[in-house]
Simulated scan of single mutants.
Amino acid sequence: MSAVISLEERGVVEISGADATNFLHNLVTNDIAKLAPGDARFCALLAPQGKILIDFLVFAQGEGETRGYLLDCPKELELDLLRRLGMYKLRAAVSFTSKSDELAAFAVLGEARPKIPALAIARDPRSETLGWRLIAPRGTKAEDAHEDYQAARIAAGVPQGGVDFVYGDAFPHEANMDLLAGVDFTKGCYIGQEVVARTKHRNLARKRVTPYHVDGKAPAPGTKVIAGEIEIGVAGSHSGDRGLALIRLDRLADALAAGTPPTAGGAPLQFAVGRPAS
């Protein structure tokens, strides 16, 4: 059986109430109305200008008026998420509560469905290679295999907010949310929707988090990526000889066409241009 990996950097928020579905559906980038128990959605709450404030995975629980949701979110942004949800509540019959003291997020790499007690369990919607995502009671037996999860995440081209892009400064396309099942382009309005739709239809994404391979030591997060004398991006998370970097696509294309190898911290980087692996 594959290892159960504790994701201590994640928090858990519960959303409940008769208006929970409509409330969440009208706020985030993905279709919550069609989310069924046993599945998960990758979503983000955006600023009106279309930039990512917080991204998270959503699990549905129950049906009808008892239907509620568990959000697997970055723990350091949990209080900000609760505050922002409160800003949009108005008169909606909905409540939101931190559950991080009693619940935790876990990952299980591999194809087989994990056979452990969990309040929510689903395939990770961002990539088949990331296996399963669980929300289970804190204290659930887990192994110290976080590096294995990080290696799988990076190999799949899945960015981590705060490392591979800056919250409040990156658009969904820049963080590959459109490629990782994080945006529903048919669901209708949500906060920031017009900017996201315009970026897609006009092909305006100038930057993306892009996987690379390195011979030697990978650059530290925050290291500038240079082609000749031109800065083309910044390095993010890495594991072994693979990493992710937020790259200006036009500058990378110009560098490759000119035969100028991109480097970061003196190490030559080989970029995999295109859709992240699934």
Rank of each mutant, 00 (worst) to 15 (best):
A170Q: 08
R123C: 01
L179N: 12
G162L: 07
A136S: 06
D164Q: 06
P125W: 06
V209K: 08
E143W: 00
A142L: 06
N203M: 14
Q193N: 10
A152I: 01
M177D: 02
I191S: 09
V158C: 13
G161V: 01
R206D: 12
R138A: 15
V195P: 02
A181M: 07
D144F: 00
D124L: 02
V158R: 08
A175M: 07
R126K: 06
D148L: 11
R208I: 10
L134I: 02
A151W: 03
G168M: 08
A136K: 02
D178I: 05
A155N: 07
T210K: 12
D148E: 12
N203W: 06
L180P: 04
R202N: 12
F185R: 10
D178V: 06
K207E: 15
V196K: 07
A155I: 01
A170C: 14
P159E: 09
E194R: 04
D184M: 11
F171T: 12
H146T: 08
H146A: 14
P137T: 03
G168L: 08
I154E: 07
K141N: 11
A170K: 05
L179I: 04
N176Q: 10
T199M: 15
A136I: 00
R133A: 04
C189W: 02
V195Y: 05
V158N: 11
F165P: 05
D164G: 02
I121G: 11
G162P: 02
G182V: 01
R138N: 12
V196N: 09
P211G: 10
G161Q: 02
A122L: 00
V183H: 06
